[in-house]
Design a protein around this nucleic acid. Structure first.
Lengths: 201, 201
DNA sequence: GTCTATACATCGATAGAC
DNA sequence: GTCTATCGATGTATAGAC
């Protein structure tokens, strides 16, 4: 958990990789602070202190506070994609979709603040950059691909699917953080979604 | 919209009611500011200026900023309950539940910030007082009563119902504010929920 | 109830030395 | 790349006159 990479690609340049390691440490500490005080309440002074720097030194690594949020956004989605990579989905498309749903709820439930950042956008004035948003798109493509394989293809079907996944995750995070009360409803939820399609495949 | 009452009961004392009118105006202006800058970014200076006061004068009406948030929380639920009161639900329990769901999504969609305050709790450190939370409980009782009448009574059924309603509202607010793309899915959502119960009534 | 004045903390960001 | 020093803004809250 919380393992992060500052960039997608690796590099051999020792100067660059040291910089990236520092950025990764800053991002990791920022998650820590956000879990303690809330995302919006992260203070650059606290963050700097947590890694043994003074606050102005952070501007070497982030142009602004919004740039830090952008790094968190990208990092969160990178964590999500890695988490999904590490799972191997087997079985019928229906079973795969159930597993995927359960995993997603579990991932959300493991870190409320991260869930907030990825799916609720609670920072007024923050919009992810195109680069960071690409990770979000990658996730949505994977999700719709799995749903499509199980027969959820019409736009209204996808809308309803998205709403149910989102609702389950939210209830899990808000009312039973770290638990699995709503994650356990994943199979029922998928079955009812599949059964509700106007014209079955 | 945004019509608010500072207290549930009315009073004949002209001094008290003037005070209440002022509080209501402050709450209404606070919603306005929150829609502009976000809930967490409400500034007491701005709020005071918006009603022709100086910032310290607000402390005559609210003991602290959290007290203002508490007033907003209570006001939002009062708006929701009033909104539901004004609708007359007729037909089968299933039809009533569909209407209720649609209304809820519409209400949420009409004001993203209000939705945030009532259902997402985005202010770190803010917890509603028992008095204000009573309005929330009143709402949840009405919702579970309507769901129960349609046959949603088991805890897992209620959990799934809550997740679906919540997910539909969230998607509506986040992706189509003011629209009805997810509100239109209410009847399908209710039917699939009713059909998914392990043991039908 | 409203005001002025102010205390006091915290914040993001910049300038410039080293 | 890191630092000290500091700016300028903003924030909540209180004291005390009127």
């Amino acid at each position: 958990m919380q393992v992060s990479a500052a960039k997608t690609h690796t590099t051999r340049d020792p100067r660059l990789s040291r910089r990236e390691a520092k950025i990764a440490a800053l991002v990791s500490e920022a998650w820590e602070l956000a879990r303690r005080d809330g995302l919006a309440a992260i203070s650059l002074r606290d963050l700097a202190a947590a890694v043994g720097l003074r606050q102005p030194s952070l501007y070497v690594y982030f142009d602004s506070k919004l740039a830090l949020y952008d790094a968190l956004f990208a990092d969160g989605y990178r964590q999500l994609l890695t988490y999904l990579d590490d799972r191997d989905y087997s079985g019928t498309p229906r079973d795969v979709l159930v597993e995927f749903t359960r995993d997603l709820i579990t991932f959300a439930s493991a870190d409320a603040v991260r869930y907030q950042m990825l799916f609720q956008r609670p920072i007024p004035g923050f919009e992810p950059t195109t680069e960071s948003f690409a990770f979000a798109l990658e996730f949505y493509e994977r999700a719709t691909a799995l749903a499509g394989a199980a027969g959820i293809r019409a736009q209204t079907d996808i809308d309803l699917f998205a709403a149910v996944i989102n609702g389950l995750s939210h209830q899990q995070v808000a009312n039973d953080p770290g638990g699995h009360r709503w994650a356990d409803l994943a199979d029922r939820a998928i079955d009812m979604l599949l059964a509700s399609r106007p014209q079955p495949t």
